[in-house]
């Protein structure tokens, strides 16, 4: 199974992909949960990843990575063998390292994770941390990641944007989306 979020960004940039609009209101992200965005987002899907953006994926985006099973690269960025495959017994620190590794492999520089902590993912236990990094041109970007493991599958929501303007612009919306996570089945 290939997720390829970088490939997804490339598709977006190349204009070869199909955008769909996501209107405000309850949206089923995957079989596990739904969220309720407050603004209209543009969405592109590839495999287990849905990417939402308003101003362009290079400026800000929310990536929903859903249902990653054992042996599958967590973010599957370069489709090379370098990426860390997911294991259901990974602890939160290992998952953070895997995400940091994936960002680094995609060309992000000086990727630093901050404040890993327990956090609710809807009604289940999860974790959350923040990211700081530079893109290849040295532009500062920020990120926030929330995730959980349910039934031995990994679920991540990753919000990133340029430190100047775009990350702060939708940070409130991201928090509202995280707060709106509703599980679609009984746990």
């Amino acid at each position: 199974m290939k997720n390829g979020w970088l490939g997804l960004v490339v598709l977006l940039l190349s204009g070869c992909s199909t955008y769909t609009l996501v209107d405000p209101g309850q949206v089923a992200v995957c079989e596990l949960y739904s969220v309720k965005p407050g603004v209209q987002w543009s969405e592109i899907k590839k495999g287990d990843i849905r990417l939402w953006t308003v101003d362009g994926a290079q400026l800000e985006s929310i990536r929903f990575i859903s249902g990653i099973r054992e042996g599958v690269p967590i973010m599957d960025i370069t489709e090379e063998k370098h990426e860390t495959p997911f294991r259901p017994d990974m602890n939160e620190t290992e998952l953070v390292e895997a995400v940091v590794d994936a960002f680094s492999l995609s060309g992000a520089q000086q990727v630093e994770a901050k404040n890993l902590r327990p956090a609710a993912f809807g009604s289940v236990e999860g974790f959350r941390f923040e990211l700081e990094f530079l893109n290849e041109e040295g532009l500062k970007k920020d990120g926030a990641v929330i995730g959980t493991i349910v039934d031995e599958a990994l679920y991540l929501i990753i919000y990133t944007g340029t430190r100047i303007h775009y990350f702060p612009k939708y940070a409130g919306e991201f928090e509202d989306i995280v707060s709106s996570i509703r599980l679609r089945r009984q746990m």
Binding site: E92, T93, V96, A113, K114, L116, R117, P118, F129
Partner: peptide, 9 residues
């Protein structure tokens, strides 16, 4: 430590 809260949990 960046993961202090998690470790304390």
């Amino acid at each position: 430590a960046f993961d202090r809260s998690m470790v304390e949990a």
